[in-house]
Computed example of a mutant assay.
Amino acid sequence: MSSSRTLLLAVMMFWLAGCANGPHRLPYDSWRLGLFAPNYMEVWIETADAVDVQDRAFRRAMSGIAAINTPKDLKGNPRGWPQRPGAGAGKQVLGADLPRLIYVRWQSLAEPQTYEAYIIIPEAIREAMLKGEKAFCEADAKWITDYRKMLSVGLAPGGVAKVWLMGPCLSAIDVARVQGSVVKKGPDGGRSNGQYALPLEPESKAYIEKYGIPYDSW
């Protein structure tokens, strides 16, 4: 057998192995990681990393500003979590298999304080990510087979992280509530001399000065 033919067969076998064991086994192209914060409780995400079931790390799958509402009339309610959480600010985790672990390090600008949390994704949640369900999508008034392929992480003062799994047209299910820990080096791993990424928006600052932070609600 010629060397070129041997090389071609080797490449084909590698490709087939990747299809059998890699992310192509998912019934969709990729899953999404999104993050949000309660009203007025602003968050800067230093990094949100994902580890899949093949122990591959996807570093900085998301970073930057978490999704948030800051109504100007100060009538937004930051207490507790919404019954129907949003998808949050996020990205598709391209090339990943099912998630095993999510690591988040964030700056809680409302306090301010820096936290980190390790979120283990249970096997039952991964099984739910593979299960297609009939769903009615109100956006286009059609019945489809939908998948829960979106992980949404709520980040609250005090270092609380709450996680849901949802689909574009399917209801959210609880994944976990994790108590994070303080990052002793402070924001940006100590490289910013204690300076946080952003100042609070005027509405958030005014709300916290008037009503405080409802730590016991998350």
Rank of each mutant, 00 (worst) to 15 (best):
D146T: 04
I65A: 07
K184N: 09
N69S: 13
A172P: 00
A110S: 15
V51Q: 05
A48T: 07
K210L: 10
Q195H: 14
G76F: 10
S108K: 05
P78D: 14
R126A: 04
Y115I: 01
F36C: 02
V182N: 06
L94A: 14
A124Q: 15
Y207M: 06
N69A: 14
A57Q: 14
A10I: 06
Y196K: 10
D73S: 12
L98R: 04
T145Q: 10
G159K: 04
A96N: 04
I65N: 08
K205C: 01
G189C: 03
Q113S: 07
Y207F: 14
L74D: 11
Q54D: 14
Y215K: 12
K149N: 13
A206H: 00
N193D: 11
K185F: 00
I68H: 00
V175K: 01
A17N: 10
L33Y: 08
L155V: 06
D97H: 09
L94T: 15
Q83A: 12
A139Q: 06
K131E: 14
E42F: 00
L16K: 09
R191P: 01
I144S: 02
S2H: 00
P23E: 13
F136M: 07
L74E: 09
F58L: 07
W164K: 15
N69T: 14
D174T: 03
R25C: 09
S217C: 05
R5P: 00
K185Y: 02
V93R: 14
